[in-house]
Design a protein around this nucleic acid. Structure first.
Lengths: 351, 351
DNA sequence: ACCGCTTACCCAATCGATTGGGTAAGCTGG
DNA sequence: CCAGCTTACCCAATCGATTGGGTAAGCGGT
């Protein structure tokens, strides 16, 4: 453990310099740069003496002082709808890992998907002088992003994309297609979609991927079979209720763009006396750790959440380095489980 | 939105001073202190001119410069086992809220409950010169805490307590008692406990609260009916398997110190052909949002997670202000649901 | 002996805000 | 008319690290 503490005495460059009878700038050059500058700034012997002493005294540079001078804080801001959304929490673990690898630290804040909060949190981050932002709660219609671009704030989107901005996301269109392929191949011909929030690209893309693929197979999906909803269990429950009420004949399969909505829907189905996997197939999205653990394990499109977080950091790093970057979409895969594994039964077909 | 950006020109005190033809120190005093110092430093008219200009130009003080001078960063470090644990994620939301209210920003890092990582993350936080730490992953046997105290690093514990250190936690002993009261009152006499990790006070206290209360009723709990386990679904599943194998006669009720472990256990019970709520009562802990949404809703001891987070910040603030603080334990309440609502059935009693 | 080059440093300004210690002008009271 | 006080400021050092621009010593070559 180093000795620079919140409470105790802190070792500074000057301390090291005084101790060794050399100038702080020399110490800085030795410690600062990996041999390129160090050589030329000091003799090998001096460099070693400095490094040894620094290590012995547990010197760690003051990041505030460094930032003040260099105008770079090595701080990244991360804004998510809410960390209590497992999906974002896992992406954040990827971010933390990626950022640590590059020597950055990260702030996270919850915006609750509320535009006022998004702006406020963004402001707080910028007031802290973060070097860049990772935005995990982008709305498709958001003006904030244009503003940030105009002001040349470096940022990347994560999880949700918005055309024209760099982003690290799951290939949600593909994910929707995978779900459609699966349900169609199991013989389903009458399906409904719990579509999520229309302001989120995740919801829109997954739904579009599913619906377009379904139509390309020659299937039909009526207006009332696509229900927009919140992403949480309560939203999924309501959406499923709507579908059960509005769709006649009752669909034989449900695609929810989010595992939590799928779980809520499963609850609603159960309340209606339907058994998931037998009377109704259900497919979720993200393959959160719960999907496999449910009493009736949930089929789900697995999105590489950790990798999305890591990729977002890499991308932001490139932006900070002034490189031009393209959006990246990581491939999802389908995990089939009991909730949708069996082919549609004769009884259901006959309905 | 203020104009100080990661990308653009930033307005400094000196800019304001030049613009108005006064000295930066005067501007600082006006903007810095709420009338006490400001009065005496400048005329009311000047103060207004300064404030108006600051607002117009979107001045926001450079936190790095401020910290360098004042030696306080207004940064708090938060260390948790993992943010993908819903419980900690929600506590963090409380922290974020509380910290924002006091003008602090927070770093979070995941330690994965691994002592090496705990130390490494602590070091990273201190290297960033945080003003204090909120530690959410304390182990009962941890030496790190003693070290931090010796080095006079201000910190408080959250979620898990360790005797002798300030902490904001749930009253876990009481929580365990509530579960015991409930199951006993429903007629159960043969129970088992999925106890969690023995290094966490949450696990130890909840188990002790339950077991002691049970014994005070005259009940008995055998050695093999208390199974230590990981906190996740897989851990709960394994523990339940152990219990089903080792306990004869089979218990009629299960208390898991964590909802996720409870969910895992429910899966195991189902695999054994047992119906939760009828063949076996199950009670979890924390009342995470999923408990109520499960196909068979889970009874759970509700712990005030948001408040614990908020309280942790308040407590740390007091520590930073040099006040003496006592550990705080917030009261849990019991939410009874289908998984344990009905009284023990005659069939089960006869077993 | 002298030019030019390398080696191994030192010097001082700078980033932006804070703060203890001035000081000049103006007013009051005796 | 002047001591003494208040008002409304200014000055300069400081926090710790970085960095462009020195410079003195030493050495090789001619």
């Amino acid at each position: 453990m180093n000795d620079s503490t919140a409470g105790g005495r802190t070792v500074t460059l000057k301390d090291l310099a005084n101790e060794l009878g050399i100038h702080p700038s020399t110490v800085s050059r030795i410690l600062h740069s990996g041999t390129e500058v160090a050589r030329g700034a000091a003799s090998v012997a001096t460099a070693k003496r400095v490094r040894d002493l620094a290590h012995k005294l547990g010197y760690s540079p003051d990041p505030q002082a460094t930032s003040l001078r260099t105008r770079r804080t090595h701080l990244l801001g991360v804004i998510v709808p809410r960390l209590s959304d497992l999906v974002l929490a896992i992406m954040y673990e990827g971010i933390e890992e990626g950022a640590a690898g590059l020597g950055y630290s990260t702030f996270v804040m919850n915006s609750r998907d509320n535009p006022v909060e998004q702006r406020r949190k963004t402001d707080t981050m910028l007031a802290r002088r973060v070097d860049g932002l990772i935005i995990g709660d982008a709305h498709l219609d958001n003006v904030l992003l244009q503003e940030l671009r105009t002001r040349k704030v470096p940022f990347v989107l994560m999880n949700r994309r918005v055309p024209g901005h760099p982003s690290a996301t799951c290939d949600d269109v593909l994910g929707g297609q995978l779900a459609a392929d699966h349900l169609w191949s199991r013989g389903h011909r009458n399906v409904a979609v719990i579509a999520g929030e229309p302001y989120a690209s995740t919801a829109v893309d997954r739904t579009a991927g599913f619906v377009d693929q379904w139509k390309s197979f020659g299937g039909a999906i009526s207006q009332q079979a696509v229900v927009w909803s919140r992403f949480d269990t309560a939203g999924g429950r309501e959406a499923a209720e709507n579908i059960l009420n509005a769709c006649n004949p009752r669909p034989t399969a449900l695609f929810a763009v989010n595992d939590f909505a799928a779980i809520g829907a499963m609850g609603a189905l159960r309340s209606h006396g339907l058994t998931v996997g037998r009377d109704m197939a259900v497919v979720g999205f993200n393959d959160t750790s719960l999907a496999a653990e449910l009493p009736i394990p949930l089929s789900s499109v697995r999105s590489p959440m950790l990798d999305i977080g890591r990729t977002a950091v890499q991308l932001l790093k490139q932006v900070l380095d002034g490189e031009r970057v393209e959006p990246i979409r990581l491939k999802p895969t389908l995990c089939v489980r009991e909730s949708s594994a069996r082919a549609i039964s004769a009884t259901l077909l006959r309905q």
